[in-house]
Design a protein around this nucleic acid. Structure first.
Lengths: 245, 245
DNA sequence: CGTGAGTTTGATGCTAATCAACTGACGTGG
DNA sequence: CCACGTCAGTTGATTAGCATCAAACTCACG
């Protein structure tokens, strides 16, 4: 990760998942200035109400988005995986509407916001890829709303496990059926609108039914069929196939 | 509304809320072909899993976005007000990830998707306005997630009333303190993750506390201070001030 | 080893779901 | 013009799911 080109290769690869990039697009991306930095688990990448800084790409590790109610209750609104673009939600906004925090020790590449805006505004393929990436983020947020608003505790947990597995697979990070979901049960609760105690019971239930196995934070999917059915999981909201448009 | 220019004026005005448009941008928008049509309450504008059709602008009336779980439970993921752009969530996607349905009788302007894409891809100000509009939609979805996941029933209902009031005010639709929220209590429940029965009790509670009054679907805000406090409402997530960037 | 974060388990309570009955407004057809 | 069906809203009784509280337990780590 010390090679200064590698982070931009990661960005090319991520954007290519959303729209095809030609040679010139790729060269334009390689022409961006980027700074790679590391952050320990728990560190903040953005804080709600602050002015967004540079755009960041998550190169290694996991991060989460969150918001708080006045009572101090935290809602985690999204999990970010290696390869994800972290800041397109604020690309054209003056104030962050949520916080972004490292779940594990992470490596991020920072890209100047104005430079990225310039690329989006001059290179159509890059615009399409970034716009699509943002639309998929919106779609995931709506699915989470359905998850938290309408599904049972068991379904919510199973759904989060399924979604993370599929997204990790797309990023070629890990084997789908034995991956690390580096979240405490309290964090899982804040992502699904339930308490850590209830998360614990639902996890144990899924384990006892043979859907998953857990060892520390390593979650292994033993029976994808049963788990995805228990989760009411349909991956179409992730828009995995690149668009034909 | 029979004047064929009016719908495009509405679009210019809506986009101007998100980014400044110059004379040429406006002329480019007026150059779009648009068809105005009416739809009765309950009619579908998009259905989940279908291929999105033309882009639509809501000229009059209210609409809602929704998704369903396998059990058939509905989660309403957003309310759309007169002036809203309805289809930017799918501008670059091949498949709708949610349904869009008329809450009242509505009037919409249809614009060819490719034409709008062309404008976004050639006119920087229009790109910025549309991108920002999409980012604000994402921000609202995350706030709803916080609402449904962490707030009490009373807060959820109050929050929805506050948000709609502020958004209506921005669109200059109505007086903020006496507006129509044309949703049944069942629909309010599906938007906030609770049952119609419980919505009823929370509404009555807010009425008895003097926060609001209700007459049919007309909701009047009697005490904004108390209501917005009861709602834990902070409008910053709506990004009302146009960006300086 | 001692410490602390995270997990597990049990007991208890409350919020909101569920079930059910009734009301009133409205539209329709006899 | 009234009988009737339908839909939304209202209210009470009961129940279930999950929160809350509390305490023990595990295990990585200094």
């Amino acid at each position: 990760m010390n090679d200064p080109v590698a982070p931009l290769e990661q960005l090319v690869q991520t954007l290519s998942c959303f729209a095809p990039l030609d040679q010139e697009d790729q060269e334009a991306i390689y022409g961006l200035a980027s700074v790679t930095r590391e952050l320990p688990a728990g560190g903040y990448l953005i804080r709600e109400f602050q002015r967004p800084g540079p755009c960041q790409v998550l190169l290694a590790g996991f991060a989460m988005r969150s918001k708080f109610s006045v009572e101090g209750a935290r809602q985690i609104t999204g999990i970010q995986l290696p390869g994800d673009l972290l800041d397109i939600q604020h690309l054209y906004l003056d104030q962050a509407d949520h916080s972004l925090q490292a779940l594990t020790n992470i490596t991020v590449a920072e890209i100047d916001r104005m430079q990225l805006q310039g690329l989006v505004e001059t290179r159509i393929n890059i615009l399409r890829a970034v716009f699509r990436a943002d639309e998929v983020e919106g779609s995931i947020a709506r699915e989470w709303l359905l998850n938290v608003g309408q599904r049972t505790g068991r379904q919510r947990i199973a759904h989060l496990i399924c979604e993370t597995a599929v997204r990790l697979k797309r990023q070629n990070v890990d084997d789908m059926f034995g991956y690390v979901l580096p979240m405490t049960q309290e964090q899982l609760g804040d992502a699904t609108g339930m308490t850590a105690v209830h998360v614990n019971r639902m996890l144990k239930q899924l384990v006892s039914e043979g859907c998953i196995a857990r060892d520390r934070h390593k979650t292994t999917i033993l029976n994808w069929e049963r788990l995805s059915e228990a989760a009411d999981f349909n991956p179409s909201y992730l828009h995995l196939q690149p668009s034909s448009r």
